[in-house]
């Protein structure tokens, strides 16, 4: 099953490589990874999506918790949560395609953020499934380039991941 694990860790050199290294070292899987500092500049928040059965996910969270740089973590998929990813896509936009791209972007509530006579750059946010669906819709028209941020997420309701 797919899990989204969010990690608060020390904003220190080497911390990221320890987390990423752990995954390859223990033969765990990384589907996507996203990391940036938080409002507290000493902490970074890293979100990783991974796939594994319960036993594997238990091992992943245990091993992550063992890393000295990891302060706290939560498996967001254990409860209700909001999952978002941002994607920028360059698609071919010539003649009739220009309208088709615009229409599809509207349906997905995506925005066209840059335009040339032959290319549209589309920005879209949503969960990974929505982004995948948009790519599928664009495929016949011609995808030129894709940049995805990887999944970020947060729990619904009052639950908070902080120190």
């Amino acid at each position: 099953m797919r899990h989204i694990i969010s990690i608060l860790m020390e904003n220190e050199p080497g911390a990221l490589s320890r987390v990423v290294g752990l995954f390859s070292q223990r033969n765990f899987n990384i589907e996507s990874l996203n990391v940036a500092p938080t409002e507290d500049s000493t902490l970074s928040r890293l979100t990783v999506t991974t796939v594994g059965d319960d036993r594997v996910i238990e091992q992943i969270t245990k091993h992550l918790n063992k890393l000295i740089d990891v302060v706290k973590l939560v498996d967001l998929t254990e409860g209700n949560h909001i999952e978002r990813e941002l994607m920028l896509v360059k698609v071919k936009a010539l003649g009739a395609q220009r309208d088709e791209v615009k229409r599809t972007a509207d349906i997905f509530r995506a925005q066209i953020v840059d335009v040339t006579p032959s290319v549209y750059t589309v920005q879209i946010t949503g969960d990974a499934g929505k982004l995948d669906a948009f790519l599928q819709a664009m495929a016949p028209i011609g995808i030129l380039e894709v940049a995805r941020t990887g999944v970020s997420g947060i729990s619904r309701g009052d639950k908070i991941l902080s120190l």
């Binding site: 050199p13 080497g14 490589s17 320890r18 290294g21 070292q25 000295i68």
Partner: peptide
Amino acid sequence: IVGVTRPIVKHSFS
């Protein structure tokens, strides 16, 4: 050496 030893230490410092 911090990179080389990363998988075989409890922790490391520079």
